[in-house]
């Protein structure tokens, strides 16, 4: 395998940061914003009898947090393969035992 050109590394990192920013924004919207800031207006809607804002704060946000982390892992895997930086048996970082 030939060494990667420098611009590939930069693009990989830019794509990584973009992905993280989008997911953090969704995290903020489904968690603090919908569950706390907008809880009163959202409580006017009901989810099977449970006020929607309350449900987001005590149930919905937690489910979506789990989904967000798995989506991140899946997208990161795809990006690693696209840029050929995924780990193989020889290229996984291991702890260096001192001495």
């Amino acid at each position: 395998m030939s060494p990667e050109p420098a611009f590939d590394r930069r693009r990989y990192w830019r794509r990584t940061v973009q992905r993280i920013l989008v997911l953090v924004a969704i995290w903020a919207i489904v968690g603090p914003v919908m569950g706390i800031v907008l809880v009163r207006p959202l409580n006017q809607f009901s989810l099977g009898g449970v006020p929607f804002g309350f449900w987001m704060a005590q149930q919905g946000a937690i489910y979506l947090f789990v989904v967000l982390i798995f989506v991140n892992a899946w997208l990161a895997d795809r990006l690693d393969h696209e840029f050929n930086v995924h780990e193989t048996a020889e290229t996984t970082q291991h702890v260096q035992t001192p001495h």
């Binding site: 997911l23 953090v24 995290w27 947090f65 967000l68 982390i69 991140n72």
Partner: peptide, 11 residues
Amino acid sequence: WTGGYVLLALL
């Protein structure tokens, strides 16, 4: 106590 894991996993 759950939302912090998103930050941990992403950042």
